[in-house]
Design a protein around this nucleic acid. Sequence first.
DNA 1: ATTATTAAGCGTATTTTTAACGTTAATAGG
DNA 2: CCTATTAACGTTAAAAATACGCTTAATAAT
Lengths: 243, 243
Amino acid sequence: MSKKIQNISVDCVVFGYDIKLKTLNVLLIKRYLESKKKKVLVDDNVLTGYHMYEDETLDDTASRVLKELTGLTGQYKQQFKAFGNPDRLTGKKDMLWIKNEQFNQRTITIAYYFLLKTDDVDIQNNQHQAKWYSVSQLPQLGFDHEQIIMEALDDLKVKCLSEPIIFELLPNKFTINEVQDVYQSILSIELDNRNFRKKMINKKYIIALDEKKTGVSKKPSQLYMFSKDIYLKLHRKTYLINL
Amino acid sequence: MSKKIQNISVDCVVFGYDIKLKTLNVLLIKRYLESKKKKVLVDDNVLTGYHMYEDETLDDTASRVLKELTGLTGQYKQQFKAFGNPDRLTGKKDMLWIKNEQFNQRTITIAYYFLLKTDDVDIQNNQHQAKWYSVSQLPQLGFDHEQIIMEALDDLKVKCLSEPIIFELLPNKFTINEVQDVYQSILSIELDNRNFRKKMINKKYIIALDEKKTGVSKKPSQLYMFSKDIYLKLHRKTYLINL
DNA sequence: ATTATTAAGCGTATTTTTAACGTTAATAGG
DNA sequence: CCTATTAACGTTAAAAATACGCTTAATAAT
């Protein structure tokens, strides 16, 4: 077993999109304070994160965090920022009693976010009591984790406008309106359905299937899939100065 | 004096724009290997970076690196990625002799880039023998520093298209053609001068001065300045899905 | 069975932006 | 005074974004 690196951790913002409720969520766990003498439940929530091992890459550590939390592997992940203010772990007054036992050293955390579907996570049988929270209604958060989530969301907002990562949040087969809903959830805006639809259908890498989605809505809706192959073939970067 | 954190460093990619040569450059120093017994000059170049101190923020450390290297403070800086592969410091064979003395521990580095003008740095009286190298003709680089520079450049390419950071590389008063040259240097592309000029002049935050630049070229050229105030007032983000 | 409701989907006019390229203007140097 | 050179203005056509009217096919209510 490889050695833990004590002062470096990887924290993961696990974004999960709920296709039925049309909400972007974050997976959070309850926080415990542990010292040699006692273990106390704190009344707030935190991201999951682990310390790095000596022989791991940063990406490895992030993947390990996700796997232990959700059982999932191979999901889209993105390192977006390192956090390391000296007071980031000791901001709260209720933690002073434990300060010298657990937090006698600075911890720098490298923050990642993951993109997946809430449906893919079995939230019931979960040792960490993990729960989904809508990004628009976050509960009380521990440490600097609210800041970390907000900066993850900012990065996601920028990135989803220029890269097709939105499809990481949807099933393989989706309707145009479902894509629109994802954008609206992430960006907190309203889009014109007719113009959005036109734009999407014109993309060569959005492929109409011989299949319709029935039952859910009034009129059955056309199903599409995203072809990463076609996207990659067509997209050598075009530079558009847009200040 | 505060304690050094042994396994966390901040490496800085110092981008300097040379307005006369129209090149984007990186400031590099010669690499030395130091052990208790000897100090040897290695035949390659590296970025500057220091270990963090216990009471510093990451931004503080980055600013300290730049100040010690160039004497400058308050320059534009951007944290862009953390690097931490287990083998990142020990890739080269010539370093095996020193491996167990200096590099017995993993070092994670948080990488920043800075934007400034080559003119602002006094390269002559420099204790580190720092030198500018064009990003298109980089010399032999130590560790994983070539990768770090390339990823910094990638980030800069993306960011300069959506934020007005280009002006960090230019003097307060500049011509439209000088702005175009910066874009061309960073992006390695050619732009149509007439269309570029039109686009720039139409921006409300690009302000024509009562002054012309003479002597350098044939026809005297109009000088402009960038107003950050106006930019910030006008720019609530507009969302343009551009996949 | 008929009708109202609702989400899906098509179409068209207007404005804005991009892209391609022709032309004129002001200087330095001979 | 002529020429080379860089600055700067202008025109046009194509493409993209925006705004908005209208039809269609299902389900739910009467």
